Amino acid sequence: MTELMIFNEVIEQNSVPFTALIDQEGQYINGKWVLGKPTEVPMAGIILPLNNDDLKYIESGVYTVKEKKLYVVDPIKIDTKVKYKGDTYTVQSFKDLTDFTDVHIYLMRYQGTGGGGEQNV
């Protein structure tokens, strides 16, 4: 079996802060299901714009310049909302290289500015 390429130090040295909005379990209140409010969890990772090669080989649709790549060592659940520089993104799968490296690479799909208002682009 191939040894993993370890990039933990590279990620730590070049990371920027962002906030993950982790959904909490809902509950029944007076017989109605009420969704849990997301908890803001501070995280750090490398955030980069998509490059031409990324756009060329994407299978899952059209992307804009507002989408970003996220490199982190700790995995993030798909569909997690992320706040970065005042914008809200949704984490989607992108490239699974975990057979070779300790880095998880995700696509952050742009959702809008501010408080997380959904906006398709």
Rank of each mutant, 00 (worst) to 15 (best):
Asn8Phe: 00
Gly117Asn: 13
Leu35Ala: 06
Met5Gly: 02
Gln111Thr: 12
Thr113Gly: 11
Ile46Asn: 02
Leu21Asp: 00
Val10Arg: 04
Tyr89Asp: 09
Asn52Tyr: 02
Gly26Thr: 08
Ile58Arg: 15
Leu35Thr: 02
Leu35Phe: 01
Asp23Arg: 12
Gly116Lys: 10
Ile6His: 01
Asp54Val: 05
Thr80Met: 10
Tyr89Val: 11
Gly45Tyr: 01
Leu4Gly: 00
Phe94Pro: 08
Pro38His: 03
Pro75His: 10
Leu4Cys: 01
Gln119Glu: 15
Val65Arg: 06
Pro17Ile: 00
Asn8Met: 01
Met108His: 05
Pro42Glu: 13
Asp96Gln: 09
Gly61Thr: 08
Tyr106Gly: 07
Asp87Pro: 03
Thr19Phe: 00
Phe100Ala: 08
Leu35Gly: 00
Leu107Thr: 11
Gln119Cys: 15
Lys83His: 13
Pro42Met: 11
Val62Met: 13
Thr2Tyr: 04
Thr98Phe: 04
Val41Phe: 07
Arg109Val: 13
Thr39His: 07
Phe7Ala: 04
Lys66Met: 12
Asp102Arg: 10
Val103Phe: 03
Pro75Asn: 08
Gly31Trp: 08
Trp33Gly: 03
Pro49Lys: 02
Lys56Cys: 07
Glu59Thr: 14
Val121Phe: 14
Thr39Ser: 10
Ile47Arg: 04
Glu9Leu: 04
Val41Gly: 06
Glu40Met: 10
Thr113Glu: 10
Pro75Met: 10
Gly36Asn: 01
Pro17Val: 01
Lys32Pro: 03
Phe7Pro: 02
Glu3Trp: 00
Asp99His: 10
Gly86Glu: 01
Tyr89His: 09
Val72Arg: 05
Glu118Phe: 15
Lys95Gln: 13
Glu12Ser: 05
Val91Phe: 06
Gln92Met: 15
Gly117Met: 12
Gln92Asn: 13
Thr64Ile: 03
Leu107Trp: 07
Met43Glu: 14
Asn52Val: 07
Pro17Gln: 01
Tyr63Arg: 15
Ser93Cys: 10
Thr101Asp: 07
Val65Cys: 06
Met5Thr: 07
Ile11Val: 09
Val73Phe: 03
Ser93Gln: 14
Thr98Ile: 08
Asp96Lys: 12
Thr80Arg: 08
Thr64His: 04
Val10Met: 05
Asp74Leu: 15
Asn30Phe: 05
Asp87Met: 11
Ala20Trp: 00
Gly36Ala: 00
Thr101Pro: 04
Asn120Ser: 15
Tyr89Glu: 11
Ser93His: 14
Leu48Ile: 02
